[in-house]
Each structure stands twice: as C-alpha cells, then as structure tokens.
C-alpha cells in the first residue's frame, strides 16, 4: 500500500523497549521514531501498533493531531517559519513569499532535490527579534526577504561543498 521502501525496524526496538513499562508513552515513542527516520513511516507505525497492542487508528490519530509529526520524509534542511503574532505584524508574509520565490516550494512542501522543506509553525518564542525562522535548530532573527534568501543560499552552498568533499 505504501510506495515508501521498507524501513529498518530495528531502529525502533530500543525505543519500544525503553517505554515498554511506561503507560501513556505513545507521543514519546512517536517522537523518538521520527528522530530516527526523520518522519513517521507507515510501516514503522504498523510495527509500533503490533508491538504495543495499540490500534493503528489510535497511532495514526495521534500522529495526525500534532503539528510536529510528519508522514512524509523531509529535506536535509527543515525551515520552520514562525507564524506568531509579532512575526505577522513585522512582515512574516513577505518572508514566506521570499522563501517560496527562492525555492519554489510552499508550506508543507520539499524541494525536488530533497534539500529544503518549508513548514509554517506556531510561535517560536523569539517575538522581540521577529520575523524569525528556525532551520535545523538554529534560529535566524530580524529577517528581511533578502536576508532570508541569503541564509538559504549559504546553506545550499554549504551542502554542495560538503557533498564534494565527502
């Protein structure tokens, strides 16, 4: 049913073992599963259902309720663009347009080369330095459309260099 290639399920064995005795750990299990694969593969969720005895509908229900969980692979760089009030007031829409213009992707999409994904997120809590975006854990603040594009270009260049030397 899934076009994705089968996942290496041994990656989640230790996760399932560590939460085996802790009730109510489904969200934590899914978080660690996503950390292992970069997203939640369907076969991994089916495996979790089998191992924990939780109905698959419950697991998918939780996975689709929370914004953090992704059912598709994401790019090497995940751009989390803040959609908080302060960012809105300080022009986050222009930043979103600039990113789309630079990469040709919109909210929830990934570039064909698999380098960048764009995700609109709720407030990142850096409101006094808005507009902001977070890419792989690093926060970029006081953005302008130009500054945002420069950040993306330098990441793309960094990735190309890393690829050449590897």
């Amino acid at each position: 049913m899934s076009k994705q290639k089968p996942s290496d399920l041994s990656l989640i064995e230790p996760v399932l073992d560590s939460y085996a005795e802790v009730p109510g750990s489904l969200i934590a299990i899914l978080q660690e599963t996503q950390a292992a694969y970069g997203y939640l593969p369907m076969d991994a969720m089916e495996y979790i259902a089998k191992r924990t005895g939780t109905p698959i509908a419950t697991i998918v229900g939780v996975a689709t309720f929370y914004a953090q969980f992704r059912l598709e692979p994401v790019g090497k760089y995940l751009i989390m663009l803040c959609q908080g009030t302060a960012c809105h007031v300080n022009g986050s829409e222009l930043i979103s347009a600039a990113i789309s213009d630079e990469l040709g992707i919109h909210d929830g999409e990934t570039t064909p080369d698999g380098l960048f994904s764009l995700e609109h997120v709720a407030c990142l809590g850096c409101c006094s330095l808005s507009p902001v975006m977070m890419i792989n854990g690093t926060t970029y603040s006081s953005l302008t459309p130009d500054k945002a594009k420069k950040v993306l270009r330098s990441l793309a260049a960094e990735s190309a260099e890393g690829g050449a030397s590897a």
Partner: peptide
Amino acid sequence: IKAGAGAFVCGEETALIESLEGKRG
C-alpha cells in the same frame, strides 16, 4: 519532563492532561 508535540489546544489544562497520557489533545 514531557515534551509536547505541537498543538495550541494543549495549553488548555484538560487537553494537556490527555496529551500527557499519550492521546490526542
């Protein structure tokens, strides 16, 4: 510590409790 998973409604206390129990908030 329990890390949330991104849902505005979980700031409401009973939704937060549901989430703590590993369910939809």
